[in-house]
Write a protein that binds this DNA or RNA. Structure first.
Lengths: 148, 148
DNA sequence: TAAAATTAATTGCTATGACAACTACTTTGG
DNA sequence: CCAAAGTAGTTGTCATAGCAATTAATTTTA
């Protein structure tokens, strides 16, 4: 099978381009695309531990630690120690973080509309479902090799 | 729009998982997924300059330089100076590189079949087309901001 | 209850992505 | 023909992905 026909390659390539375009539109905010995904998730769903947060954004916990470092350095979140379990931290979005979220959300929506401009809502919905199925299958096979 | 509905997020997440699964299956070969994509492209299409190669794998030329460094260190490719233009190098796959390609290709095909196990050929083909449309749209908008 | 096993978070390390700056070579234009 | 502009590749830097190992705290177990 040629590279251009490999679904893995196509997903990666498309992801890189979309990310790059989003990065271009977010450049003025000083926030990276990955920082955005973490901030957005925290704004949508509060009181998550870092471990839970990592799972919710499908990132390695290690990477979440470092992305939170960046967001904390920028004053957009703070780490609060969980009183129930002092090992865990509950990242909390600051007022500045919420303001940034409000500013960035429409920028992201705009990029989404740019890259999906030729697609009907039905096609978009099909695409999302197919991607989710592949992500689920990959996740299952990843777990097959991990837990023991 | 919530993060889970953002097509950008879904593509990135799916890509990360597929890449991770592929990495797991390639671990024994000592080749990373990105090194694989470059090696595969070179095996499919020879006599490319690094710049052309970068374009063919949709990677930054900088990253291709470093991936070629790795492949060269492993003895899978060599850089040959282009006699027509001494600025450019023509990476060339060695016998070891071709052997690695032959070994890895079936591993990759297997991973692809694992992650697409629930999809019909028609669905897979739809998915590829939709991804290509998004990649094209993103590419167009990226170029809008570059050439001036 | 004290030691052992687990767990949450962090740090160290390597590879990659992306951008800026630099070097070496080529092409252009006067 | 030569200086200026352009081009291919490389290197430097920062952010991120992922793995291994470490630390601090909690739970389990003997």
């Amino acid at each position: 099978m040629l590279l251009d026909d490999s679904i893995g390659f196509l997903i990666s390539r498309t992801g890189r381009r979309v990310t790059q375009l989003l990065a271009l539109h977010l450049a003025s905010t000083g926030i990276t695309t990955e920082q955005w995904s973490v901030l957005a998730r925290l704004c949508e769903e509060d009181a998550l531990s870092q471990k839970e947060l990592a799972s919710r954004v499908s990132k390695d916990q290690t990477n979440v630690t470092r992305i939170l470092d960046q967001l904390e350095r920028k004053g957009l979140i703070v780490r609060v120690v969980n009183p129930e379990d002092r090992r865990s931290h509950l990242p909390s979005v600051t007022a500045e973080g919420r303001a940034a979220y409000g500013e960035i959300a429409p920028l992201e929506e705009n990029v989404i509309s740019l890259v999906t401009e030729g697609l009907t809502p039905a096609q978009l919905s099909t695409l999302k479902e197919l991607l989710n199925r592949i992500a689920d299958a990959a996740g299952r096979h990843l777990n097959d090799n991990k837990p023991e």
